[in-house]
Protein backbone atom coordinates (compact mmCIF):
# COMPACT_ATOMS: atom_id res chain seq x y z
CA UNK A 1 0.00 0.00 0.00
CA UNK A 2 1.28 3.50 -0.85
CA UNK A 3 2.07 5.97 1.89
CA UNK A 4 0.01 8.66 0.15
CA UNK A 5 -2.76 8.09 -2.39
CA UNK A 6 -4.49 11.11 -3.88
CA UNK A 7 -7.48 10.62 -6.15
CA UNK A 8 -9.77 12.95 -8.05
CA UNK A 9 -8.50 15.95 -6.03
CA UNK A 10 -9.86 19.41 -6.74
CA UNK A 11 -8.93 22.57 -4.84
CA UNK A 12 -8.59 26.30 -5.31
CA UNK A 13 -9.02 29.69 -3.73
CA UNK A 14 -12.62 30.64 -3.02
CA UNK A 15 -14.62 30.34 -6.22
CA UNK A 16 -11.50 29.97 -8.35
CA UNK A 17 -10.69 26.32 -9.03
CA UNK A 18 -6.99 25.57 -9.60
CA UNK A 19 -6.50 21.81 -9.26
CA UNK A 20 -8.62 19.36 -11.23
CA UNK A 21 -8.73 15.56 -11.22
CA UNK A 22 -5.36 15.26 -9.53
CA UNK A 23 -4.26 11.72 -8.77
CA UNK A 24 -0.88 10.52 -7.52
CA UNK A 25 0.76 8.07 -5.18
CA UNK A 26 3.92 8.28 -3.07
CA UNK A 27 5.46 5.09 -1.70
CA UNK A 28 7.44 4.77 1.49
CA UNK A 29 11.00 5.99 0.93
CA UNK A 30 10.16 7.41 -2.49
CA UNK A 31 10.98 10.92 -3.72
CA UNK A 32 8.32 12.04 -6.18
CA UNK A 33 8.90 15.22 -8.13
CA UNK A 34 6.33 17.55 -9.69
CA UNK A 35 7.63 19.90 -12.37
CA UNK A 36 5.76 22.75 -13.93
CA UNK A 37 5.87 26.42 -14.92
CA UNK A 38 4.82 29.23 -12.60
CA UNK A 39 1.09 29.41 -11.96
CA UNK A 40 0.33 25.81 -12.97
CA UNK A 41 -0.84 24.78 -9.50
CA UNK A 42 2.23 23.09 -8.00
CA UNK A 43 2.20 25.04 -4.74
CA UNK A 44 -1.58 24.80 -4.59
CA UNK A 45 -1.24 21.02 -4.74
CA UNK A 46 1.01 21.01 -1.66
CA UNK A 47 -1.26 23.46 0.14
CA UNK A 48 -4.25 21.23 -0.50
CA UNK A 49 -2.38 18.14 0.69
CA UNK A 50 -1.20 19.87 3.88
CA UNK A 51 -4.64 21.32 4.60
CA UNK A 52 -3.60 24.96 4.22
CA UNK A 53 -6.45 25.25 1.72
CA UNK A 54 -9.47 22.92 1.68
CA UNK A 55 -10.01 20.28 -0.99
CA UNK A 56 -13.32 20.80 -2.77
CA UNK A 57 -13.43 17.22 -4.07
CA UNK A 58 -11.50 13.97 -3.94
CA UNK A 59 -9.62 11.99 -1.33
CA UNK A 60 -6.18 12.25 0.27
CA UNK A 61 -5.38 8.89 1.87
CA UNK A 62 -2.32 9.14 4.10
CA UNK A 63 -1.15 5.98 5.88
CA UNK A 64 -4.54 4.38 5.22
CA UNK A 65 -6.66 7.28 6.52
CA UNK A 66 -8.55 9.79 4.36
CA UNK A 67 -7.33 13.13 5.75
CA UNK A 68 -9.05 15.34 3.16
CA UNK A 69 -11.51 16.72 5.72
CA UNK A 70 -9.02 17.12 8.55
CA UNK A 71 -7.57 20.46 9.71
CA UNK A 72 -3.85 21.09 9.04
CA UNK A 73 -2.70 20.43 12.62
CA UNK A 74 -4.17 16.88 12.56
CA UNK A 75 -2.44 16.06 9.27
CA UNK A 76 0.84 17.40 10.70
CA UNK A 77 0.44 15.21 13.79
CA UNK A 78 -0.10 12.18 11.55
CA UNK A 79 3.34 12.79 10.03
CA UNK A 80 2.58 14.94 7.00
CA UNK A 81 5.31 17.61 7.08
CA UNK A 82 5.22 20.72 4.91
CA UNK A 83 8.04 23.12 4.02
CA UNK A 84 6.36 25.91 2.15
CA UNK A 85 7.69 28.36 -0.38
CA UNK A 86 9.20 31.34 1.42
CA UNK A 87 10.10 29.10 4.40
CA UNK A 88 7.90 31.01 6.86
CA UNK A 89 10.39 30.97 9.70
CA UNK A 90 9.12 32.63 12.90
CA UNK A 91 11.20 35.82 12.69
CA UNK A 92 11.22 36.69 16.41
CA UNK A 93 12.17 33.19 17.58
CA UNK A 94 15.77 32.00 17.42
CA UNK A 95 16.74 29.13 15.14
CA UNK A 96 16.77 26.76 18.12
CA UNK A 97 13.39 28.00 19.34
CA UNK A 98 11.94 27.50 15.86
CA UNK A 99 12.96 23.84 16.00
CA UNK A 100 11.88 23.32 19.61
CA UNK A 101 8.50 24.80 18.74
CA UNK A 102 7.99 22.19 16.03
CA UNK A 103 9.23 19.34 18.22
CA UNK A 104 6.76 20.24 20.97
CA UNK A 105 3.87 20.41 18.53
CA UNK A 106 4.58 16.83 17.49
CA UNK A 107 5.19 15.64 21.06
CA UNK A 108 8.83 14.84 20.25
CA UNK A 109 11.55 15.04 22.92
CA UNK A 110 13.74 18.12 22.60
CA UNK A 111 16.77 15.89 21.97
CA UNK A 112 15.55 15.72 18.39
CA UNK A 113 16.71 19.33 17.98
CA UNK A 114 20.29 18.29 18.80
CA UNK A 115 19.91 15.43 16.32
CA UNK A 116 18.94 17.92 13.63
CA UNK A 117 21.87 20.19 14.50
CA UNK A 118 24.14 17.18 13.97
CA UNK A 119 22.53 16.43 10.64
CA UNK A 120 22.65 20.08 9.50
CA UNK A 121 26.03 21.43 10.79
CA UNK A 122 25.34 24.77 9.12
CA UNK A 123 22.77 25.41 11.89
CA UNK A 124 25.35 25.37 14.71
CA UNK A 125 26.62 28.96 14.43
CA UNK A 126 23.14 30.44 13.95
CA UNK A 127 21.26 28.65 16.73
CA UNK A 128 20.83 31.75 18.90
CA UNK A 129 20.12 34.15 16.06
CA UNK A 130 16.58 35.33 15.35
CA UNK A 131 14.97 33.58 12.40
CA UNK A 132 14.20 36.90 10.72
CA UNK A 133 17.86 37.89 10.29
CA UNK A 134 19.05 34.65 8.68
CA UNK A 135 19.97 34.47 4.99
CA UNK A 136 17.66 32.73 2.51
CA UNK A 137 19.81 29.60 2.46
CA UNK A 138 20.04 29.44 6.25
CA UNK A 139 16.28 29.89 6.51
CA UNK A 140 15.74 27.09 4.01
CA UNK A 141 17.90 24.68 5.98
CA UNK A 142 16.21 25.77 9.22
CA UNK A 143 12.77 25.26 7.67
CA UNK A 144 13.75 21.76 6.63
CA UNK A 145 15.26 20.92 10.02
CA UNK A 146 12.22 22.39 11.78
CA UNK A 147 9.91 20.23 9.71
CA UNK A 148 12.03 17.14 10.49
CA UNK A 149 11.78 17.91 14.23
CA UNK A 150 8.16 16.73 13.95
CA UNK A 151 9.43 13.31 12.68
CA UNK A 152 7.26 13.34 9.54
CA UNK A 153 7.03 10.25 7.37
CA UNK A 154 6.31 12.37 4.27
CA UNK A 155 7.62 15.87 3.55
CA UNK A 156 5.87 18.18 1.13
CA UNK A 157 8.70 20.36 -0.16
CA UNK A 158 7.87 23.49 -2.11
CA UNK A 159 10.66 24.91 -4.32
CA UNK A 160 13.50 24.57 -1.80
CA UNK A 161 16.13 25.96 -4.21
CA UNK A 162 14.37 29.27 -4.74
CA UNK A 163 16.81 32.11 -4.05
CA UNK A 164 19.60 30.09 -2.48
CA UNK A 165 23.25 29.64 -3.45
CA UNK A 166 24.42 26.45 -5.26
CA UNK A 167 26.54 25.20 -2.31
CA UNK A 168 23.50 25.13 -0.03
CA UNK A 169 21.45 23.53 -2.80
CA UNK A 170 23.99 20.68 -2.98
CA UNK A 171 24.00 20.38 0.80
CA UNK A 172 20.21 20.04 0.81
CA UNK A 173 20.35 17.31 -1.85
CA UNK A 174 22.95 15.32 0.10
CA UNK A 175 21.11 15.70 3.40
CA UNK A 176 17.75 14.68 1.94
CA UNK A 177 19.24 11.58 0.31
CA UNK A 178 20.95 10.70 3.59
CA UNK A 179 17.70 11.17 5.50
CA UNK A 180 15.87 8.95 3.06
CA UNK A 181 18.42 6.21 3.62
CA UNK A 182 18.52 6.53 7.41
CA UNK A 183 14.90 7.34 8.22
CA UNK A 184 13.04 5.91 5.23
CA UNK A 185 11.70 9.41 4.58
CA UNK A 186 9.35 10.04 1.64
CA UNK A 187 9.28 13.37 -0.18
CA UNK A 188 6.83 15.02 -2.54
CA UNK A 189 8.93 17.71 -4.18
CA UNK A 190 7.69 20.62 -6.24
CA UNK A 191 10.39 22.41 -8.26
CA UNK A 192 11.26 24.38 -11.34
CA UNK A 193 14.97 23.56 -11.11
CA UNK A 194 15.38 20.53 -13.40
CA UNK A 195 18.90 19.72 -12.17
CA UNK A 196 17.82 19.66 -8.55
CA UNK A 197 14.87 17.49 -9.49
CA UNK A 198 17.15 15.16 -11.44
CA UNK A 199 19.50 14.80 -8.47
CA UNK A 200 16.71 13.88 -6.07
CA UNK A 201 13.55 12.51 -7.63
CA UNK A 202 12.87 8.83 -8.34
CA UNK A 203 9.90 9.71 -10.44
CA UNK A 204 8.69 12.96 -12.01
CA UNK A 205 5.19 14.14 -12.87
CA UNK A 206 4.41 17.18 -14.95
CA UNK A 207 1.77 19.68 -13.91
CA UNK A 208 -0.01 21.91 -16.36
CA UNK A 209 -3.07 24.05 -15.75
CA UNK A 210 -3.94 22.25 -12.54
CA UNK A 211 -3.69 18.73 -13.94
CA UNK A 212 -0.94 16.16 -13.55
CA UNK A 213 0.41 14.24 -16.49
CA UNK A 214 1.24 10.56 -16.30
CA UNK A 215 4.72 9.67 -15.00
CA UNK A 216 7.33 10.99 -17.38
CA UNK A 217 11.05 10.73 -17.84
CA UNK A 218 12.82 13.82 -16.56
CA UNK A 219 14.03 14.84 -20.01
CA UNK A 220 10.52 14.84 -21.47
CA UNK A 221 9.01 16.56 -18.48
CA UNK A 222 11.70 19.23 -18.37
CA UNK A 223 10.95 22.89 -18.61
CA UNK A 224 12.43 23.34 -22.06
Amino acid sequence: MSLLTVSDLAAGYGQIGILRDVALTVDKGEILGVLGHNGMGKSTLLKALSGAIPATRGSIVFEGVDVAGEPPFRRARRGLGYVSQGRQIFPALTARENMEYAARAAGQPLEIVDDMIERFPRLTPILDRAGGVLSGGEQQILALARCLCGRPSLILLDEPTEGIQPSIRDEIVETLLRLRRSLGLSILLVEQNVKFMGDLADRVLHMEKGRLSADAALETASMA
Partner: peptide, 10 residues
Protein backbone atom coordinates in the same frame (compact mmCIF):
# COMPACT_ATOMS: atom_id res chain seq x y z
CA UNK B 1 3.49 35.78 14.23
CA UNK B 2 2.22 33.18 11.79
CA UNK B 3 -0.93 31.30 12.67
CA UNK B 4 -1.04 29.27 9.46
CA UNK B 5 2.52 28.04 9.89
CA UNK B 6 1.89 27.12 13.55
CA UNK B 7 -1.09 25.05 12.50
CA UNK B 8 0.87 23.33 9.75
CA UNK B 9 3.46 22.34 12.35
CA UNK B 10 0.77 20.58 14.38
Amino acid sequence: ENEGRAELLG
